[in-house]
Design a protein around this nucleic acid. Structure first.
Lengths: 251, 251
DNA sequence: ATTTATAATGTTGTCTGACAAATCCATCAG
DNA sequence: CTGATGGATTTGTCAGACAACATTATAAAT
């Protein structure tokens, strides 16, 4: 019983998808503003001449896409910061694949360092230095310092004042965590490696502190090059399946 | 009537989400392999002691996350290339925001050009040159050549042989399309701009052809710098809302 | 026996109706 | 004016049915 009282979704594909498209369009064009409540499921069903199930499926899609949030008893609302989903293949844990990730990371972090040198605020610089100190501390205690290392690089990304960098770096770092841990649990090489890492970090921070864009970019580039080299020294059989943290789902 | 015959989702949050979590976990750990068919909705409902509606919502989430695909009459199948969804804020169309995108693009394309120079295959180089020729052709006909321009940059990204670059560049290019179009519809500046662009492209391609990594990276960097400059010359009031192509939804 | 139609079965998509759980709102008591 | 209370609203879940499509088994025909 598809009567299409108001608008007629192009026939053919899934009804829920067609409705989801229309609602998405309304949100993207600003026809429905962030925070605004959308019509009730019953009302939407009435408007499009479809059942509530289909409406729910459509809204479910929007929810999964981060466009709306639903509260039981209250309604569904356009998200404050509408998002779109970038679907990316899950990197497999092979050495080859991790190196591809490092290449991406190099691209991002070189530029992030450059921008950070250009426009870091004093407080951002302070946070970078604190993160660097945290690494030293962790290493002295005997920890691997991987988390601190990532926090350090994240602080630089933040100082770029460009959210795109932080978003993507955050995303991929989840998959690099394991690989980096492996290189640092290699007992024989660990001490020399960490000394190198700390020294390379220092060069980057100095350049950022002095506002020397080119030096910062080059230092970051060298750091990532060396990171790849260090990774290749690690016994590859340690690079096994990426552990499932359960936190990498979009829910 | 929640009996949880096999596994008991931790009670509290949405049922569908809990089920989605479990299924996601099964897929990520490889317990269910790509291409494999998952149990029918009825069977899943039976297993978890929930109704079919909830199962459908859960599967809808997985579908939206790109983890499974469903075929009516056949079943739902684990996707061949499991993905995770990176949810990103939709860039607004302000000049400031577009420039942030260009910064990201510079990071990616500089490195992509470097890698392309390092390992492009002959056929990839051919495709890059064809794309460059397409731009010339479009310009001669009087078109803006934006699509061809993007195809050109995409060809370079492909030649990097690193899928991460192509995926991210593809994603963001949707939002840059409009901005670039604007700079090229500026009648007074168009001819000189296009001449510049074509010349800059030529330098990049030459470097890639000769396998000169450093030159390719520098040429790409300069190209993007100049792109930002050209954008700033365009009347900012033309930068209005990003047109909704309908193709930027994750459906 | 092999191939081609046909029927039977299984599965997802949609419809309908109902109730539970959470929220919102108006009314009323103090 | 404040706070409690009850009813109305709205999403979440359940249940059962049919439609649309796919797959498989069966029968027919050459």
């Amino acid at each position: 019983m598809i009567t299409n009282h108001e608008t007629q979704p192009t026939r053919g594909v899934q009804l829920s998808e067609q409705v989801a498209r229309q609602l998405t369009h309304a949100i993207h064009t600003g026809e429905m503003r962030p925070g605004e409540r959308l019509p009730t499921e019953a009302a939407l069903g009435e408007r499009y001449g479809i059942s509530r199930s289909v409406v729910r499926e459509a809204i479910s899609m929007l929810r999964n896409a981060g466009l709306v949030t639903s509260r039981r008893g209250s309604g569904s609302f356009v998200a404050e910061v509408p998002t779109v989903a970038l679907r990316l293949a899950i990197p497999d844990p092979s050495l080859q694949s991790v190196i591809r990730l490092l290449e991406l990371r190099r691209a991002l972090e070189v530029e992030a360092a450059r921008l950070a040198a250009q426009r870091r605020t004093p407080s951002q610089l302070r946070r970078i230095r604190n993160a660097m100190a945290d690494i030293d501390e962790a290493v002295e205690v005997g920890a691997d310092g991987v988390d601190q290392d990532m926090a350090f690089h994240r602080a630089i990304a933040e100082a770029s004042n460009n959210t795109h960098f932080t978003a993507i770096i955050d995303f991929y770092n989840r998959f690099l965590h394991h690989a980096i841990t492996v290189t640092r649990t290699n007992e024989s090489l660990r001490e020399t490696f960490m000394a190198q890492v700390i020294e390379e970090h220092q060069v980057i921070v100095d350049a950022i502190a002095q506002g020397d864009e080119e030096a910062a970019a080059q230092a970051a580039g060298r750091h990532l090059e060396h990171a790849e080299w260090r990774l290749r020294q690690a016994p590859t059989d340690l690079l096994e399946r990426i552990e499932d943290t359960g936190a990498d789902t979009p829910f």
